[in-house]
């Protein structure tokens, strides 16, 4: 209750809540593709390598979020290129980009003269530091993401479901695969502000993975995952407020517990159905 009272009084909490809700759109929509296409490792690679861009932006005096966005897109294109061209060495190359990006980021930050920023803020996020400028950027990214997904829903579905058939139907699979990874990169940037780049993969995949237990189509999966993402952000924020816990980590723990419960529930439901069918 104290959280909701504070919400009406403090602008930083309102920003945090709005930020969480805006990030949930990216996490629900693109998280669904990440889960069904099974590209969690790729998304993890993008998320971690982004530190290079944030560090470089910080070093050159630019806004770290813009550095993160540029780095995320570049890394997404590189990873897409590696996946399409060198599938056999895919994990080695993605792991290398993952580590090199982080190393570059740490070097840039360590060499930045003057006030040293708290690296933990980038690694684990701080939803309470979301500014109104960040909110505008997040909103713009959400609009771009939703517009592209709505316009090319069929092509993204075909590429996520059956690349070979999509290719036979004349869909430029490589182009849409690259675009999909770029949109995943945009979602990663949206979520970094909330939970940081280490935990981003959990918020990108857990709500979508829970939704997959209960829905028939990817469209519904996106809606349910967005709703769940918002729920986890709000409840994580509320739970963390009074005891002054790190909000990002609390959000992830709430999502993790919900995933665990949902997995158990869903497997019990499946067993129950199987028994009902065999006893008919």
């Amino acid at each position: 209750m104290e959280f909701f009272q504070a919400l009406t009084q403090h602008a930083f909490l309102q920003h945090a809540l709005l930020g969480g809700l805006l990030a949930s759109i990216g996490c629900g929509v693109m998280g669904s593709y990440v889960v069904v296409k099974r590209i969690g490792f790729l998304a993890g690679g993008i998320a971690h390598a982004v530190l290079g861009g944030m560090g470089a932006a910080f070093f050159f005096g630019a806004e770290p979020m813009y550095g993160a966005l540029i780095a995320a897109i570049i890394v997404a294109l590189l990873i897409g290129w590696v996946t399409l061209g060198w599938r056999q060495q895919e994990d080695t190359l993605i792991s290398a980009m993952w580590a090199v990006g982080m190393a570059a980021g740490i070097l840039f930050i360590s060499q930045t003269p003057g006030y040293q920023i708290d690296l933990m803020t980038y690694l684990f996020g701080n939803i309470l530091l979301v500014t109104s400028k960040d909110l505008w950027l997040m909103m713009a990214l959400d609009v771009v993401l939703l517009l592209l997904v709505m316009l090319f829903y069929r092509q993204f579905l075909a590429v996520a479901f059956d690349e070979e058939f999509a290719r036979l139907r004349g869909v430029p699979v490589a182009l849409f695969y690259m675009l999909l990874l770029c949109l995943v990169a945009v979602s990663v940037v949206l979520l970094i502000q909330i939970v940081g780049l280490i935990l981003v993969i959990a918020l990108l995949t857990l709500p979508a993975a829970i939704a997959l237990h209960y829905v028939q189509t990817i469209g519904r999966m996106m809606i349910v995952a967005t709703f769940l993402g918002a729920l986890f952000c709000v409840s994580g924020l509320a739970v963390s407020y009074q005891p002054d816990l790190p909000a990002g980590a609390t959000i992830i723990l709430v999502a993790g517990v919900a995933y665990l419960l949902s997995t158990v529930l869903s497997s019990l439901r499946q067993r129950h159905r199987a028994r009902a069918i065999t006893s008919r």
Binding site: V36, R38, L151, F152, Y153, R154, Q155, L157, A158, A160, F161, D162, E163, E164, F165, A166, R169, G170, V171, L212, V215, Q216, T217, I218, R220, M221
Partner: peptide, 29 residues
């Protein structure tokens, strides 16, 4: 079938994928 069997897609949506590449690029069916 090269796809995951647990992919969230209905029979009708799967069949509709056969209409890709026949008409407009943008939007729905």
């Amino acid at each position: 079938p090269p796809f995951a069997r647990d992919f969230p897609i209905t029979v009708e949506q799967t069949v509709l994928l056969g209409r890709l590449g026949t008409a407009h690029v943008i939007g729905g069916y």
